[in-house]
Write a protein that binds this DNA or RNA. Sequence first.
DNA 1: CAGATGACTCCCA
DNA 2: CTGGGAGCCATCT
Length: 131
Amino acid sequence: MFTKPDPALAERIYIAVLQVRVGAVATYGEIAAVVGGGIEAREVGYALGDLPATRQTAVPWQRVVARDGAISTRGTSQRVLLEGEGVAFDETGRVIMARHAWRGPDSDWAIAHGFHTLSDKGERGEQLLLL
DNA sequence: CAGATGACTCCCA
DNA sequence: CTGGGAGCCATCT
């Protein structure tokens, strides 16, 4: 499924995004994995696209980027916001993921709120260890 | 009612 | 490294 998620699911997605700390960036797929429920990266993208303007300052949507660190949103403000948080970009305009990759939500928090951790699914676990 | 259209990712040329 | 197509579906012209 990769359509506009229902309100309840979108809410979980926003909550997951809130776990990404300043200076780190998560991918759409990682957020989808943390939220669980079999959702895919695109649903995360749609949910963020639906984020009301009134909540854009409360939800750090700018910390969610494409798998390769590229920013595919329409506006160019995302990069500016990230740079303001100390996130570095390479010559091709992509976030240096090796340096800013999100490590996933706090394990205790995830368990307490019914979310998954990135290591749960074994996604990118090996790469993260290289940090 | 048919066709276009996505804040994605993977795979192959 | 860049480019295009598939996957898969609710919504909006």
